[in-house]
Design a protein around this nucleic acid. Structure first.
Ligand code: ATP
Ligand code: MG
Length: 516
DNA sequence: AACGGGCTTCTTTTT
DNA sequence: GAAGCCCGTT
């Protein structure tokens, strides 16, 4: 692994950019997250900023944990430590402030988990109307409005009786706190001289308002508009555009060198994303050598897809290095059995797709870890983060570190793997389209394309794209065409293998997706 | 209260 | 296919 201390010229410029509103907008694998950690480390180590004056915002808790480790590593030997540095998600930062301010309640209060929300409406509404009320409440809160009347208000009162906040409330309350108690806002603003955010493209309006109120002169946001994949979860909002409006004349830096993916993979990904309108012309160059073509395979069925991937994985695993993490080979551009289990990720659009892979991997005796799937234990939903370790004992799954990773593309955001299988690349699955008869049959195609792009750009050395002609989903067997995204990859960058169909004569005119 | 048949719905997810 | 929900029956 390359030393994580190196920076190229643009990265260095971003790290050393003076305090002042700063956007770092750059493509995947260009070292945005590296810049983030170095910028924080530099503040502490070189500029002697007090760690407690820094607020570093990440998208997930696991990213926060990893960031903590990276920064600690960068500070090692300098005598400095992390002190009271805040590395938090937006939600966690809001929650911490509310707790420290004992607002809106003295003493204990807690967060209502998403799955417990409907229960709170017990007796208030027939359960068939609960979901839509919760949607309505979310809509209100996302627009920074408090529920004012009707069952929405009743829900809010029930939260209050139980000293509970839902996730959206965190921002409503912290913003209200700042409005009601200017002295409190002043204190927090004075504390956080330096605010930095990663994955800024997925910041919601409420989150942005919250962080903006805390931030002073030194406010740095880092992200990639082409990797915005959580639009579905919030009301439409363009954080980069808003930041520019709020900070006219802010500095805008970009990073153009991709250190993650071999050139063929990156070029293929660029061809796909090129179909989305770019606000700013894209510039992204591979630093690694070309590598092997993107491997595209079509299968007769979803089961076949899973079986073939399991076999493929076996072929990739190096004998001796089978259990080494990220063995760092394949710079040679040669196919080789040199990978460890932890080097390999199987990515998919829908959690429901995971099961077939689990079955196939189990049959092949290959250890894996599935992330994010809702897990029930004795009929009760358990929280993965805390309880997965125990849970694993009772299942076939393996401990982290020597297992294949199974997760949705959404979850893979920000991560990288030497070998990536991007699966279920069918029209209707990726891009996902709700059941054909539904009104909202139109997928939000640009976001789906970004998702595909995120999936592709997780790969360092090998990218396998696969689709099935037939898939069993939601109780129906669907006939599916390959995703149009696949056809956007130029011939010279890919190698296609269509698994031959069972003996059935087909007319010569077979629509060939790849010769559009 | 507990059972079961018929009905609908079912992404992606942060906390 | 599985789960949740409604509603009528035991
Ligand atoms: N200057 C550099 N020299 C060598 N390797 C680098 C350099 N900068 C970054 N890398 C490596 O490139 C990979 C991608 O870096 P990083 O995760 O920071 O990119 P990113 O822009 O945050 O990607 P994403 O958009 O997917 O979040 C990592 O493996 C990182 O160690
Ligand atoms: Mg990153």
């Amino acid at each position: 692994m390359e030393p994580s201390s190196e920076l190229d010229a643009s990265q260095s410029q971003a790290v050393h950019a003076d305090a002042g509103p700063l956007i770092v907008a750059a493509g995947p694998g260009t070292g945005k997250t590296r810049v983030f950690s170095h910028r924080v480390a530099r503040l502490i180590r070189d500029l002697h900023a007090s760690p407690r004056s820094i607020l570093a915002v990440t998208f997930t808790r696991s990213a926060a944990a990893e960031m903590r480790g990276r920064i600690r590593g960068l500070l090692a030997g300098s005598g400095a430590d992390l002190g009271e540095l805040w590395i938090e998600t937006c939600h966690a930062a809001a929650f911490r402030i509310l707790r420290e301010e004992a607002y809106p309640y003295q003493g204990e209060f807690s967060i209502l988990r998403e799955e417990d929300k409907p229960g709170l409406l017990e007796g208030l509404l027939p359960s068939s109307e609960r979901a839509s009320l919760l949607d309505e409440i979310r809509g209100l809160k996302q627009g920074l409005q408090w529920p004012q009347s009707g069952p929405a208000l009743a829900f809010q009162q029930r939260l209050q009786e139980r000293r509970l906040l839902d996730f959206d409330d965190l921002f409503l309350f912290v913003l209200r706190l700042f409005d009601e108690k200017p002295e409190s806002l002043k204190r927090w603003r004075q504390r956080f001289d330096h605010v930095i955010m990663d994955e800024f493209q997925d910041t919601s309006l409420a989150q942005y308002r919250f962080i903006s109120r805390l931030a002073g002169e030194d406010f740095c946001v880092i992200g990639d508009p082409d990797q915005s994949i959580y639009g579905f979860a919030a009301t439409p909002f363009s954080p980069f555009a808003q930041f520019r409006r709020d900070h006219p004349g802010c500095r805008v830096l970009s990073l153009t060198e991709n250190y993650r993916s071999q050139a063929v993979i990156l070029d293929a990904a660029k061809q796909v994303i090129a179909r989305n309108r770019a606000q700013v012309p894209r510039c992204l160059r591979a630093r690694l050598q070309r590598g092997l073509p993107v491997d595209i395979s079509g299968h007769q069925s979803d089961r076949q897809e899973a079986e073939m991937i399991a076999r493929r994985v076996e072929g990739l695993l190096g004998g001796a290095s089978r259990f080494t993490v990220d063995s760092g080979w394949a710079q040679t551009g040669e196919e080789a059995r040199c990978h460890g289990l932890a080097d390999i990720a199987i990515l998919y659009r829908l959690n429901a797709q995971a099961r077939l892979f689990e079955t196939a991997l189990e049959r092949a005796g290959l250890p894996y870890v599935t992330y994010g799937k809702k897990i029930k234990k004795d009929g009760v939903l358990i929280d993965e983060a805390e309880d997965l370790e125990d849970f694993r004992d009772s299942e076939t799954a393996a401990p982290r570190g020597e297992a294949i990773t199974l997760m949705t593309v959404h979850r893979a955001k920000g991560l990288e793997f030497p070998v990536v299988f991007l699966t279920g690349c069918e029209d209707g699955v990726l891009p996902f389209r709700r059941a054909a008869d539904g009104r909202r049959a139109e997928p939000r195609i640009e976001e789906e394309r970004r998702l595909f792009y995120v999936g592709m750009t997780r790969a360092r050395q090998r990218l396998f794209i696969s689709y099935a002609r037939q898939r069993f989903l939601f109780g129906k067997t669907l006939k599916l065409a390959p995703s149009a995204f696949v056809a956007d990859i130029a011939e010279e960058l890919r190698r296609i293998q269509e698994q031959e169909s069972p003996p059935r004569k087909r007319p010569g005119l077979q629509p060939d997706l790849f010769n559009l």
